[in-house]
C-alpha cells in the first residue's frame, strides 16, 4: 500500500467528517425549526378544527370558575399559548406530557401538574433552542407580562410574577402546587414555564412563574392582553 493512497484516504475521511459536522449543525439550527414549524401549525389547525366542530357550549355567565376541562390525552394538543412579549405572531400549541417526542411538536404540559386554569400549578416546558426556538427570549420576561392561553372555550390571562429564576435541573419544587421560591405564599391558580439555560446547554433551568389574572369566555373576544 503506497503512502499516497494512505494520505489520500485519510484526507477524504477528514473532508467527509467535516461535511457531516456542517450538515448536522444545519440540521440542528435550521431543519428542526422547519420541522417544528410544520408540526406546530398542524397541531394548532387540528385544535381549531376540533373547537369549531365541538358542540358549542353556551357561555356560563357569572361564573368565576371555568368549567372542568376534559382529561388531557397524552401527546395531544389541548390549548394554544400566546406571549405578547415574544412577539405578536408568537403562538404555540400546548401538548400533554413532556416526552422528547411531544416537545418536538410544541410546548409540553407536565402531566403531574394542575390543568389549565385550575387551582394548582399549570406547568409547561418548552425548547429554548432548536425545534422552532419557542422560548428563545425567555430571559426577557418581566413582572406583569401576559401569558395568554385558550382551550377553545375560555381565555386565561396569566401575569408573570417576576424575572425568570435560574435553578438546577433537579429542583422539582419549582412545579409544586405552591412553587418553592416563587414568592407565592398560599394555594392559588399558578403557571410555571420551564426551559433550559444556558441557551445551548443543559446545566441549569430557567423558570418563570405567573398567577391567573383574568378569564373570559371566547365568545367575549380576545382578552385585552392580545389586543394591541
Amino acid at each position: 500500500m503506497s503512502v499516497r493512497l494512505v494520505v489520500r484516504t485519510f484526507s477524504e475521511l477528514c473532508i467527509t467528517v467535516g461535511t457531516l459536522m456542517v450538515l448536522f449543525v444545519a440540521y440542528v439550527l435550521f431543519w428542526t425549526g422547519i420541522k417544528a414549524g410544520g408540526a406546530t401549525d398542524g397541531q394548532i389547525d387540528r385544535l381549531q378544527d376540533e373547537w369549531s366542530q365541538g358542540p358549542f357550549a353556551a357561555p356560563v355567565p357569572e361564573r368565576t370558575v371555568p368549567p372542568a376541562p376534559k382529561a388531557y390525552e397524552d401527546g395531544k394538543p389541548f390549548a394554544v399559548m400566546y406571549i405578547p412579549r415574544f412577539g405578536g405572531s408568537w403562538d404555540w400549541p400546548v401538548l400533554e406530557g413532556t416526552r422528547a417526542g411531544t416537545l418536538k411538536k410544541g410546548l409540553g404540559h407536565y402531566a403531574s401538574t394542575a390543568a389549565l386554569g385550575r387551582s394548582g400549578n399549570f406547568s409547561v416546558a418548552g425548547h429554548r433552542r432548536t425545534y422552532g426556538d419557542p422560548f428563545k427570549d425567555f430571559p426577557k420576561l418581566r413582572a406583569g407580562d401576559a401569558v395568554v392561553l385558550t382551550d377553545g372555550t375560555t381565555w386565561f390571562t396569566y401575569r408573570i410574577e417576576k424575572e425568570p429564576y435560574r435553578t438546577v435541573p433537579s429542583d422539582i419544587g419549582v412545579i409544586d402546587p405552591v412553587p418553592r421560591r416563587s414568592g407565592f405564599d398560599g394555594p392559588g391558580r399558578y403557571l410555571t414555564l420551564t426551559t433550559c439555560d444556558p441557551e445551548w446547554g443543559s446545566s441549569h433551568r430557567l423558570i418563570a412563574w405567573a398567577h391567573l389574572d383574568a378569564t373570559q369566555p371566547v365568545t367575549d373576544g380576545k382578552p385585552e392582553a392580545l389586543r394591541s
Binding site: T98, R99, A100, Y110, T113, T130, S170, R205
Partner: peptide, 15 residues
C-alpha cells in the same frame, strides 16, 4: 446532545 433538556426532573420528563 443537551438541547432537549428543558424540564425539571422527576415529572416523567424528557431528559
Amino acid at each position: 446532545l443537551p438541547f432537549n433538556d428543558v424540564t425539571v426532573d422527576g415529572a416523567g420528563a424528557a431528559r
